[in-house]
């Protein structure tokens, strides 16, 4: 048996699947860290403040924007899947749906970035 060839995969819906899967995994890693960080408040104000100061670094700010994008993309991707499940899948409207999902996700990330600035 041979495996499917990489040349077979270059397709927008495949990219949507990849982004959904990767964002899901990253968010699963991120959430425990997020709660750990919030938990710092339990060990006193200074611990949390020290942590918050650390997150002020540019690289972390940048990764926050990426994170917001992934969160938004996971949400819009999930809405797309729900629409497939309950409304149906139509060849004609698929590219448009994908574009809307990507666009809304990018818009959220941009809004967040502008808010930071």
């Amino acid at each position: 048996m041979i495996r499917t060839d990489w040349r077979n995969r270059g397709h927008s819906a495949y990219w949507a699947f990849l982004i959904h899967r990767i964002s899901g995994l990253l968010l699963a890693f991120f959430l425990p860290l997020h709660f750990l960080a919030l938990g710092q408040a339990l060990s006193g104000e200074s611990a949390l403040d020290a942590f918050l100061a650390w997150t002020e670094r540019p690289l972390l700010k940048l990764s926050e924007i990426v994170l917001v994008f992934l969160l938004a993309a996971h949400l819009t991707g999930g809405l797309r899947l729900l629409s497939i499940e309950f409304v149906g899948w139509h060849r004609e409207s698929q590219k448009a749906l994908l574009a809307v999902a990507g666009g809304v996700a990018a818009f959220c990330a941009l809004l967040y970035a502008l808010n930071l600035a």
Partner: peptide, 25 residues
């Protein structure tokens, strides 16, 4: 996973993706 590769490649221009979505519904 709705990769839609089946639908892209089907030589009869069928859309198994649509059928599978129909089954899910």
């Amino acid at each position: 996973h709705t990769h839609t590769l089946c639908t892209e490649r089907c030589p009869m221009h069928l859309s198994p993706t649509t059928s599978i979505a129909g089954l899910k519904r």
